[in-house]
Design a protein around this nucleic acid. Sequence first.
DNA 1: TAGCTCATACTCCACTTTAGAGTATCGTCA
DNA 2: TGACGATACTCTAAAGTGGAGTATGAGCTA
Lengths: 212, 212
Amino acid sequence: MAAKLTPTSYALLGLLRLQPWSAYQLTTYMQSTALNFIWPRANAGIYNEPKKLVAHGLATARVEPNAGRRRTIYEITGKGRRALAAWLARPNGEWSFASEAALQIFFADGAGLEELRAQLRALIEHGRDRYQMDQAMVAHWLGEGPRFPARLHFTAMMADLISSLTTAIDDWASRWLLLSESWPDTALNDVNETQAREILERLLETLGTRDN
Amino acid sequence: MAAKLTPTSYALLGLLRLQPWSAYQLTTYMQSTALNFIWPRANAGIYNEPKKLVAHGLATARVEPNAGRRRTIYEITGKGRRALAAWLARPNGEWSFASEAALQIFFADGAGLEELRAQLRALIEHGRDRYQMDQAMVAHWLGEGPRFPARLHFTAMMADLISSLTTAIDDWASRWLLLSESWPDTALNDVNETQAREILERLLETLGTRDN
DNA sequence: TAGCTCATACTCCACTTTAGAGTATCGTCA
DNA sequence: TGACGATACTCTAAAGTGGAGTATGAGCTA
């Protein structure tokens, strides 16, 4: 009877290893921290997950009063610790990206130049919002310290990853916003064909130096 | 009676705008091109989507013989074109990332140093596989040209995006593989605390220059 | 010729996940 | 007293998934 655990299960086990949590705390933490960037999950799904952990003996639940209300506190079990350790020992290089914005840009030859550029600007604006949010968090970590001070290095690692990706997308959108300045429209023409070939040639070089 | 269209619906409309497609062709194209990077979708879902488009009058379907077999060919309608154009005119800066690997790295304080480093190496290896794949595609586009020659600039745009993200993650993993060389274990210590603070301080600077 | 493999062409399905609400209670404030 | 925000959690129709499966035809080999 192998428990059908998902990465979400393991994420919660990872948090429970640090301390006991209420379901609300787990959900709030997962949705307001770096975790929401590297493993975005819907509210309802997170609430359901600890119940599954309990059903499989990986966590325990107790209901306690809290300021006149009841809340459920979850704690990891020994079995849960072992399941987490086994998962951590299984290397996995996978990641995925998805973007409706990028999809719209990919099909922008069905729209006008100004619409394409508006999409690129929207991506840049979205990145700006992200930067402001991240800046406040980083300043807080350097000042008061993170929620888990003993994990500062992991906090920094994730902040570095998020910033790297946000910056990469920002740079990409800015690059093509600049390149498209000289386009008459979204159709292929001499200007943007030359640009495209140059970019592809540059990519071929870059990829060639990295594939071994 | 507004059709409940998803980004997947629009992606298919975007492809149908270029030419008529069979369901098999739509599925194969979506899963083997840049589209699978910016909007990854399961096989069954893609097969179902064109039927919905037909149900909403955005596409038509006809069954034709093909080498003794039957296949369904879909074509976009005028209504479908208008729905696509309206979607393209709605800017959207959103994107999402998800990675079980990053999740495992985030919780690696529950494992040993070698396990953390194995995770980082797995990410780098995954990137290397990606580079080899992309290299072959880019070489093909520069040689024979892409499937849709008139969209070369959009092909280049997406290749640039994919490469940027792959490179960013590769660099991040390499950076932390290097930084962790001097760690005695995954716990916080003087060495990695100093590293973490330096990274966070550098991030604060970078974010500060980009948030306005 | 028969069998195997691959490509073409698509369906099925139990389960998971989502977006986007909703309900309920308590403390604080005007 | 009523409104608002925080705490605490549930509900649900629709979308999506992984991982098969079925079927047919062409090409190749023993």
